[in-house]
Every structure is written in C-alpha cells, then in structure tokens.
C-alpha cells in the first residue's frame, strides 16, 4: 500500500474517486431497496445481496444461455425481475405478515438468502461465470484511465435512482404507495389495493438490486459470493440516516468512497475501516447524516 499521500496525485485521486462512486452507486441501489422495504413493509431484508446476485445470474443466463440480443434481453430481464419480486414477496413475507413476532419476517429473509444462493448454485454451478462489459475498455482523459463500465454504472445507477425518487416524491401513484406503506388499514378503507402496492414495491426493490448485479458482474464475475456486498449497503443506510431515502443514497456513496480511499493504507482491513467510519459518524450524529424522524402524534 502506498499510503494516504498517494491521493495527492491527481490521477490516483480521480481514479479512486470514480471507482468509489461507481461502487457507491451499486450500494445505493441496494440501499434504496432496503429503505423502501423498511418503510413500506417494516421488513429489514437480509436477502438484499442475494437479490443483486440473482440479478447478475439472470442477466447472464439470458445473454449467454438463452442468447438473447441486448434489445430483447432487457425487457426479458425486467419480466424476470418482476417475477422474482412477486415470488419473493409471497414466499418470504406474505405468510408471516400477521406473525406475533415481528422478527419472524426478518429471519425469513435470512432463510430466503440461503435458498436463493442454493438455487443459484444448483442452476448455474459453483464456478464463476464471465460476463462481458457493456462497453469494453477505458476512456483516456489526459493521463487518466477511466473504465467505461464504471462510468456507465454511475450513469445508469443515477438514472434509476432518480426515476424511483420521482415516482415516490412526485407521482400520484407513488403517494398512494407511500400511504399504503404508512397505514395499511386506512389505505384499505380508502380502496387502495395494498397487495398490489406491496407487490409493486417488491418489484421495484428487486429491479434496483438486480440492475446493480448486472452492472457489476463484468467487473467481479458472476458468482454466489456477490451477495456479501449487501453489508456495505447496510452501512450506507445507517450512515445516511435510517429511514431516509436521500440518506441511504448519500450514505452509500460515502461508504463507496471511504472503501476506495482506504485501499491506500490497508486492503485486508477494508471492512474494519468502513465500519469504523460508520461508528464515528453515529457517535457524532446518531440519527445519521440525514436522519429524519417520522413520529405519530396524538
């Protein structure tokens, strides 16, 4: 490791920053899904990483096994993600929604994570699979070498996040979904079909994570250990402020950058550095960087 002062070299700083933001985008896609599920259903989803992994496998399968051309692969993948979202909801959440122990739903997601991993191993084997990047190669800006795949990840991730944001904050349908998430009983009395809104939420969450998996697969190879990335997403959610969508996104980007810069002085203790930063942030700002608190008055 070269030590922190290598960051003073503009090349290195720039490349590590792009790297960090790209990884941060992947974490943000997962983190956004986590927050949506927490707010909509009150479930902390420990299978978020596995959803990312499944997305990588599904897109790989559609591209290399079913051999669909790109223009057909995208809509086919979207259909698969929707299918996975609905199945995930009905298997891991639906039967337990009235359980007397609220932790039942959380444990169910842990079980779901294992099942998804095993299904992936049975279907595609345990050897990692290679997936070609959307655009190969690097773009040279002066003496900078920026990989296209990282730049695309940042762009596509940002677009997706923006779209979901617009849905929930600006569109009528988004407000209906928020209402169903905040008070299911009142929502049903008004005529909101809460099964549909819950399913829609799950579909959005799965799509976000799966796209993340698709974007990162060419860099990391498609294999079942991709699920471990979810730890960073959790860190991003907590750093940004639990319950806040903005916070989850900013927190995740922050974690991505911390991870990238920390490689200048350690690579084996990367996880420890990330969580150390998390603890420091929480010590000084327990509600996270953007913590919101929605309380019920009266």
């Amino acid at each position: 490791m070269q030590g922190l002062n290598i960051l003073l070299q503009p090349n290195v700083f720039m490349q590590l920053t792009i790297n960090g933001v790209a990884m941060g985008m992947i974490y943000a896609l997962m983190a956004m899904g986590l927050i949506l599920l927490i707010r909509a259903i009150g479930v902390m989803n420990f299978a978020q990483g596995e959803l990312l992994m499944l997305g990588a496998f599904i897109t790989w399968g559609l591209t290399y096994q079913v051999k669909l051309p790109f223009v057909l692969m995208i809509p086919a993948a979207m259909l698969c993600f929707a299918f996975v979202g609905v199945v995930f909801m009905f298997v891991a959440y639906w039967p337990l929604r009235t359980a007397s122990y609220p932790t039942a739903t959380v444990i169910s997601t842990m079980g779901a994570a294992m099942v998804i991993r095993e299904i992936a191993t049975i279907t595609w084997g345990s050897l990692p699979l290679v997936s070609a990047p959307l655009v190969k190669g690097v773009v040279r800006v002066g003496s900078l070498r920026l990989q296209y795949q990282y730049l695309l990840t940042i762009a596509i991730g940002a677009v997706l996040i923006f779209l979901v944001f617009v849905l929930f904050e600006k569109l009528y349908a988004g407000r209906i979904m928020q209402a169903a998430a905040q008070d299911k009983y009142a929502a049903e009395l008004l005529g909101i079909p809460t099964v549909l809104t819950t399913a829609a939420t799950y579909i959005i969450v799965v799509t976000l994570a799966s796209v993340g998996g698709y974007m990162i697969a060419p860099v990391f190879l498609v294999n079942v250990t991709l699920g471990t990335l979810q730890l960073r997403a959790f860190a991003g959610v907590v750093t940004g402020g639990f319950g806040s969508v903005k916070g989850a996104i900013v927190g995740s980007l922050f974690i991505g950058l911390v991870e990238s810069y920390s490689s200048t002085f350690t690579t084996t203790y990367k996880d420890a550095v990330v969580f150390l930063v998390l603890i420091v942030v929480l010590l000084f700002r327990p509600q996270g960087l953007f913590g919101e608190r929605v309380a019920d008055k009266a």
Partner: peptide, 27 residues
Amino acid sequence: PEGRHIFPGLSVEENLEVGTIAWHGFF
C-alpha cells in the same frame, strides 16, 4: 376509522389527494 389513521409521513395536501383513489385510479 376510530383513531383517525391519517398518513403521518404525507402532508395535509397529500393526505387529501390520496383520498381520491377510489375514483381517480392509479395513473
């Protein structure tokens, strides 16, 4: 319902908007 059950995270105006769902339709 008893206990009011308004949507706590939505504004007053947004609460009212959501009330129209029965005849407004999602989109």
